[in-house]
Design a binder for these strands. Structure first.
Lengths: 280, 280
DNA sequence: CTTCGTTAGTTTGTCTGATAAACATACCAG
DNA sequence: CTGGTATGTTTATCAGACAAACTAACGAAG
């Protein structure tokens, strides 16, 4: 009678199995899946339960369904993710420190590749310059945020490590709110930082570009203290030594105490942006 | 006439309206929504159609549903999205070289964080040692692959950068086939490399651990030449040192055209991705 | 009066079955 | 051979029902 007490969410289990099916069969976007009834019998559930799973997946574009044609594999629609995740008031389960550190790992790690490819492809330099030029002529916050995201996105793209693009897009969603707190007076500062990074990359000085980009990204962290309204005075005492930033609870994804995360963040996070990678 | 692409998706329309409802009512995580039947009558659709919309939203964690309790606004869970990041457009048509370079960026970039946390949490060292010990006693290929993946997964986990965890799992799927080509005679080599990495991390020498891990991962690269077959003679002659690799073309190339990128990746890379922590 | 166990009510979870719409394919006519 | 039509397939949506799980109120015991 009782089969699976493991997870009450039958729908999620089905979605997981469906994902596994696509991976195992090595299906690529456009490939057709079995029909709903076939999948339902295959998984041993009713068609409605399976349908709810496919609908969840189709919401993000992972699978597409058309009447008469059936189910096909698609790609995740990051715009949709941005649309629905961006408006949401609170996203916990990942602290801002972890977010920044993650971004540092990706973007800093990418720079040597960018420098190398820049030496071979002059267009990369042009594209980065073009974005920064547009940034200079920008007046609205909305446009500024879009262009700033585009700049960092172009950085990843230029590295040729396309899998990291997926992550960059996702992080962009979560970083958007940080960027939206940037005051107009700080714009020139960011543009100048971008320019220095471009120049360093153009000269092949990947290590210098890394230092510059680290400082640029970590400026988000300083802004964060202002946003959360925490004690920013302690943030001024830079490099005191406390270093347990970075990661706390990793996968605590329960939703029991939700609104406590807001207050919790301001209380616990008063450490430095700089992480283990302490140069100089 | 067709004004737009037919938005016959009733489900998306309902999801949109539900999102608007949350925004208008200024609901925050934990707040309760009307019941499914109420929302259904409110929107003028059947309960099942509305249910599909709520399920789509609950897939992202925007709303949560519990029997007897009703619908509540949930907290967005990043892990929920990263789990399905493998369906990102950028993840398609990725060459094995790019995959290895991507992995290098992530795993090398993570090591400084691991070293730091290892100094505070002795359990990390124990867990890594435990996996390696199990690796030594392994006899079957299946088990060896699982443990090898577990080791690298533990490295990411130990860094505390949980967003990267999903990515590691993702890459593990792709790398599984490479690892399965590992000959039994090469096992001790890999185990020894793991041990050296653990020791270096334990001593706080993140930079040394990075060099070791780079060599360890790039051994996959060598195996790759055997796997892809092709003209491995050219690959052998061009880069005997094998510590080079370099970013290749970004996308648009299928895995079939591997050889061109192999030759292109000349010995230009003498820099280290993720060298921010060169304290020497 | 407080506290704990029980019971009734509410709400989602899942199922069965059916009809309509949209698409794909095969068939037939010119 | 071509083009339109007829038919079949598959998803989209609906209706109603029962089970499971959680909430809350109520009553009994200390």
């Amino acid at each position: 009678m009782l089969k699976n007490i493991e997870r009450s969410n039958l729908r999620d289990v089905i979605a997981e199995r469906l994902k596994g099916y696509i991976v195992n069969e090595d299906l690529r976007p456009g490939d057709r899946l079995p029909t709903e009834t076939e999948l339902a019998t295959m998984f041993g559930v009713s068609r409605l339960s399976l349908r709810e799973a496919t609908k969840s997946l189709s919401f993000l574009g992972i699978v597409e369904a058309k009447p008469g044609r059936g189910l096909t594999v698609g790609s995740v629609d990051m715009d949709r993710v941005t649309e629905y995740l961006g408006f949401h008031p609170a996203m916990h389960s990942v602290t801002p420190e972890v977010l920044i550190q993650t971004r540092l790992v990706i973007e800093l790690g990418v720079l040597p590749h960018v420098a190398e490819r820049m030496a071979e492809d002059a267009e990369i330099h042009q594209r980065l310059e073009a974005i920064n030029d547009q940034l200079r002529r920008t007046r609205t916050l909305q446009r500024w945020v879009e262009l700033d995201i585009a700049f960092h996105r172009e950085l990843i793209l230029a590295s040729g490590l396309s899998p990291l693009m997926a992550f960059s897009d996702l992080l962009a969603v979560f970083f958007r709110r940080f960027r939206e707190s940037v005051k107009k007076a700080e714009w020139p500062e960011g543009i100048e930082a971008h320019q220095e990074i471009i120049d360093a990359l153009g000269d092949g000085h990947a290590d210098q570009a890394q230092r510059l980009l680290r400082a640029h990204i970590e400026s988000h962290w300083l802004r964060l203290d202002l946003v959360t309204g925490a004690d920013s005075n302690r943030a001024n005492t830079t490099q005191s030594g406390a270093t347990q930033s970075g990661a706390t609870q990793s996968s605590a994804t329960q939703s029991s105490a939700t609104q406590s995360s807001a207050t919790q963040s301001s209380a616990t996070q008063s450490k430095q942006p700089s992480s283990p990678n302490s140069e100089t």
